[in-house]
Amino acid sequence: MPRHARLLLPGYPHHIIQRSHNRQPCFLQRSDYSHYLEWLDEFGRTYDASIHAYVLMTNHVHLLASIEDVVQLPILMKNIAQNYAQYLNRRCGRSGSVWQGRYYSSPVTTDRYFLTCQRYIELNPVRASMVDAPSRYRWSSYSGNAGLLADELLIPHTTYLSLNAHASKRYEAYRGLFADAISPGDLHLIRRAVTGNRPL
Rank of each mutant, 00 (worst) to 15 (best):
M1H: 03
H4S: 15
R6Y: 02
L9G: 13
Y12D: 09
P13G: 08
P13A: 08
P13N: 08
H15R: 06
R19E: 00
Q24T: 06
C26Q: 00
C26W: 01
F27Y: 10
Q29Y: 11
R30F: 11
S31E: 15
S34R: 15
H35L: 14
L37F: 06
L37D: 07
L37P: 00
E38P: 01
L40M: 11
D41C: 05
E42G: 02
F43C: 06
G44T: 05
Y47C: 09
D48A: 15
A49I: 04
S50F: 00
I51E: 08
Y54D: 14
Y54A: 11
V55C: 15
M57W: 08
T58I: 14
N59S: 12
H60M: 04
V61K: 01
L63G: 10
I67F: 06
V70S: 01
V71H: 15
V71P: 13
L73S: 08
L73M: 13
I75R: 14
M77C: 09
K78C: 00
N79L: 01
N79A: 05
Q82N: 12
N83G: 14
Y84I: 02
Y84R: 04
A85V: 03
N89S: 06
R90K: 09
R91A: 01
C92S: 08
G93E: 08
G96A: 04
G96P: 10
W99F: 05
W99T: 00
G101D: 04
Y104M: 04
Y104R: 04
S106F: 01
P107E: 04
T109C: 05
R112W: 07
Y113H: 12
Y113L: 11
Y113F: 12
T116M: 10
T116H: 10
T116C: 13
C117P: 15
R119H: 10
Y120T: 06
Y120W: 06
E122N: 11
L123P: 09
P125Y: 11
P125N: 12
V126K: 11
R127S: 05
R127F: 10
A128R: 12
A128E: 07
A128S: 06
S129F: 15
V131C: 05
V131Y: 07
A133C: 02
A133N: 13
P134Y: 13
R136G: 03
Y137W: 12
R138I: 00
S141N: 08
Y142R: 11
Y142G: 12
S143A: 14
S143N: 15
N145W: 02
L149F: 11
A150I: 09
L153V: 13
L154M: 10
I155D: 14
I155C: 15
P156F: 00
T159F: 14
T159W: 13
Y160D: 06
Y160E: 04
L161R: 15
L161D: 14
N164D: 14
N164E: 06
A167W: 02
K169L: 02
K169M: 02
R170H: 10
A173L: 06
G176S: 04
L177V: 08
F178I: 10
D180N: 12
D180F: 01
I182P: 14
S183I: 02
P184T: 07
G185C: 05
G185V: 08
G185M: 09
D186T: 10
L187G: 01
L187I: 13
L189W: 02
V194C: 06
G196Y: 03
G196P: 13
